[in-house]
Structure formats: structure tokens, C-alpha cells
């Protein structure tokens, strides 16, 4: 797994890549918490290059999503999900919970 973050005017952009299983998902969680702990609650996660996202990855995304949305202060939105991630979100009933955008630009522009 690789994570790069970009502080943008409207939000913080996470670009994830590689395999996100139970061994590395906690690192994703801690990087997301570092952003929300800094008072930034508008996050876009670009998942284009994620080859595999396990339930551990979903748990971290859900945790950050809940933190961001508390008191309507922000949101965590997904962009460019590939078919495997799409399937996992669908099977877990999360596809209609997260806001998902086909492009990173649209997700960033939604804030």
C-alpha cells in the first residue's frame, strides 16, 4: 500500500494504491486520523490504483467517514473506484452510503 496526501484548497486528497489488507489498513487509519485530528473534515480518497481493499480498509474508511460527518462539519468522498472495490462496497451495502465520483476532479469539486 502507498498513500500520498495533498492539501487542497477545499479538501484533503488521499491517493491510495496497492493492496490494502489487514496488515496495512491501520496505517491508512492513522493517516486519516492525523488529518481529522488537525481539524480537516473534508476528505477525498482516490482509489483508482487500489488493487485490493479488504474489510479492514473499509473499517478505516467508515471510521473516518463518521468522524468527518459528525455535526455536519464535512464528509469523506470516494473517487475513481475500480471494479473490485466497487464489488466490495456493493456487497457490504456501502455503495449507497459513501458519495462516489467517477473522477478525482469531480470529487474535489463537490466540496
Amino acid at each position: 500500500m502507498e498513500i500520498s496526501t495533498v492539501d487542497m484548497k477545499r479538501c484533503t486528497l488521499f491517493r491510495l494504491s496497492g493492496r490494502i489488507d489487514g496488515s496495512v489498513a491501520p496505517e491508512l487509519g492513522s493517516q486519516l486520523r492525523a488529518v481529522t485530528d488537525a481539524g480537516k473534515y473534508k476528505i477525498v480518497v482516490n482509489m483508482r490504483d487500489v488493487t485490493y481493499a479488504s474489510s479492514a480498509c473499509l473499517r478505516e474508511l467508515i471510521g473516518a467517514w463518521k468522524t468527518c460527518r459528525r455535526w455536519n462539519r464535512g464528509d469523506l468522498r470516494l473517487a475513481e473506484i475500480n471494479p473490485n472495490v466497487d464489488k466490495v462496497l456493493d456487497l457490504t451495502g456501502l455503495k449507497n452510503q459513501f458519495m462516489i465520483f467517477p473522477t478525482e476532479a469531480e470529487a474535489v469539486g463537490s466540496f
Binding site: 474489510s55 473499517r59 471510521g63 457490504t92 456501502l94 452510503q97
Partner: peptide
Amino acid sequence: PPDMALPLEERPIGGLGLHLMRQL
């Protein structure tokens, strides 16, 4: 099993792995 009818805010986070195994 996770209650899919609940909004995500009210859903407990655990149980997704076993749910996925059963689905797959």
C-alpha cells in the same frame, strides 16, 4: 450480520469480514 437497512452512522463497524465471506 451487519444490518444493511441501518444508516451507516448507526451501524456497528464490525462483522464485515464474515459477511463478505458468506457473500463471496
